[in-house]
Design a protein around this nucleic acid. Structure first.
Lengths: 338, 338
DNA sequence: ATGAAAGCGCTAACAA
DNA sequence: TTGTTAGCGCTTTCAT
């Protein structure tokens, strides 16, 4: 509010040049004589001038800001993706505005105020599990999906190779001799839950094992949902010998429930998750999991988005990143030391 | 880039009024005749006009955006504060730009580009453990600290009542009969680590227990650092009967190390943490902790910041929020069920 | 109640 | 190489 901040014209006046020359200097343009440049630069320092980003955005028609919409900002997986995206954005002198949208309405409002009001140059959407939400995103607005591909529209995306990851997780259990393998999924409305379920099925089929839908329980990614999943198996009196949980938190809930029910892990029940959260290795027993590189996913998404914005590469790209099996004691007593 | 987006003047032309009238309508000003208003509103809808936020910022000299600088975006504690802040900001039609700054240099650069370039109207700084960082924040720029108070400057702040929380945690251990109580701290350069250490000392003193500096180990908030803390006690052959860890993650590391060292919790070793992370109750044994309401902290910080920005309440305020003891099995077998 | 004019701080196109 | 003239899309006086 203190309007005391010097503008480009104040600097120009003091330096005895035109404001345009100052503009040239702060933008590093070539057509400025060395002497003038030095003079202007000195004046800038002396006056403590700093360019006004909003005015620049205004004149250039670019905000140099990206937005990221995510179901929430606290889940470790999501936060890691966001952090990766933010770091990459800063690297390219962009800012990242991250917001959470729980329901479709708040999502729409957010898109409206971010995209419609031209507050940002591009948008990253994490877990965009319903394409319908995008009906009113303007055509040609730079968007990248994370965690799911676009079905109806041509939107670039980056996600885990969910089918393959699930396949490999299930394979790991099979390779340990398990034949009675249950599955705890994320919300089935999300693509990645579906894909991971398919990978699970493929591994079973390939091993000649039957697919039993009653061994599949839908969770909501929370530890609580994992806990109640195992509980319900216990209550039915048909506890499997192994469970593939589609994320670590649900796996941890399962471990907890197993403890309560006096089921020994891994001897009576083997458990594998997906993510490799920082605390996974501290659990009892330490959790076997499929480690994914979430910051990389965010980084990759940002790169793709910036490419689109800068019109370097507008082609549709659907990147699928791998995960890496980390064997710990929840599936095998011999599993990786600490 | 498609310059096809209608402006206020396009709407005005089509509606046969001046652009100023359109401005009045979209800003809900009173001096517009009902008929004109209806006409303009219809035209706006018809043309799909949406105001350009950047242009508004430019004309108003306000960005309607806040920034939040945090050590990182992934720690559950920090992410929760940020999420609380973001939600509150959105409630007031502000956006929150959250960035992480690991070292002082990147912090300075960030402040420069956010504040110096007038990209935001206000700033929330989480864990501002060195006031020196703020030397070049302009006077009178709206700033609120989270997690620590300002010593050298008059900056409003909101944080946990760290001294009291630590006091209560230690009291809990003492009330269980413990006299040999060790402490694992966060980085001592951070205010909250110091305050929590003081609370620990006060509780000891009050109970007539000696303060033994060799029973204090400095960690870095990570589970790993908790683990090695207990390890070092074990190696020294002087394992205490109770440990107060200044956060949950370190406490979890301690539980893990205890398991490895075959130390029974809580019979041989009681452990209490601070935070109450979502997974704390899933640990083995479930972790006793001081629960803090992190979203509330973020919310409160945002409110204070907006008050300052809107000049409603510029007084220096230093809010300290309480925490709540949650007893689980890591300190007492009788501790709260599941 | 409405419009005209000026300006927010900068960049871009054109002249000189 | 430098300066002049126009905007960017909006809000804010000040007239009318």
């Amino acid at each position: 509010m203190l309007n005391s901040r010097p503008t480009i014209r104040d600097v120009a006046r003091k330096a005895g040049v035109s404001h345009q020359t100052v503009s040239r200097v702060i933008n590093g343009k070539q057509d400025v004589s060395p002497e003038t440049r030095v003079l202007v630069e000195a004046t800038i320092v002396q006056m403590g001038y700093q360019p006004n980003a909003i005015a620049r955005s205004m004149a250039r028609g670019q905000t140099h800001t990206l937005a990221c919409i995510s179901p929430n900002l606290t889940d470790y997986t999501l936060a890691s993706v966001i952090e990766g995206a933010e770091t990459e954005a800063r690297q390219h002198d962009y800012f990242l505005l991250s917001s959470s949208a729980v329901d479709p309405e708040s999502f729409s409002r957010l898109v409206d105020e971010l995209v419609g009001h031209r507050r940002v140059d591009g948008l990253i959407v994490i877990n965009p599990y319903s394409d319908k939400r995008f009906e009113h995103i303007p055509e040609n607005f730079p968007v990248v999906f994370v965690g799911a591909q676009s079905h109806e529209q041509n939107i670039s995306s980056v996600c885990l190779d969910d089918e393959k990851v699930a396949y490999e997780a299930t394979r790991h259990l099979i390779s340990l001799g398990h034949t009675d393998i249950a599955l705890v999924t994320g919300p089935m409305e999300e693509d990645c839950s579906q894909d991971r379920t398919e990978g699970y099925q493929r591994a079973l089929k390939e091993a000649g094992l039957p697919f039993d839908p009653t061994k599949v329980i839908e969770g909501d990614w929370s530890a609580t949902s994992g806990q109640s999943a195992l509980l319900s198996f216990v209550e039915q009196g048909r506890v499997p010998t192994a469970i593939f949980a589609q994320n670590d938190r649900m796996a941890m809930g399962i471990l907890r429930a197993a403890r309560d029910a006096n089921i020994k892990v891994p001897s009576q029940l083997a458990v594998i998750g997906v993510d490799d959260m920082p605390l996974s290795s501290y659990f009892d027993p330490p959790l076997t999991t499929m480690r994914q590189d979430m910051p990389l996913i965010g980084q990759e998404a940002t790169r793709m988005l910036l490419n689109i914005i800068q019109r370097k590469n507008t082609d549709l790209r659907e990147v699928k990143l791998p995960a890496q099996l980390v064997v710990r004691q929840s599936t095998s007593d011999k599993g990786g030391g600490r």
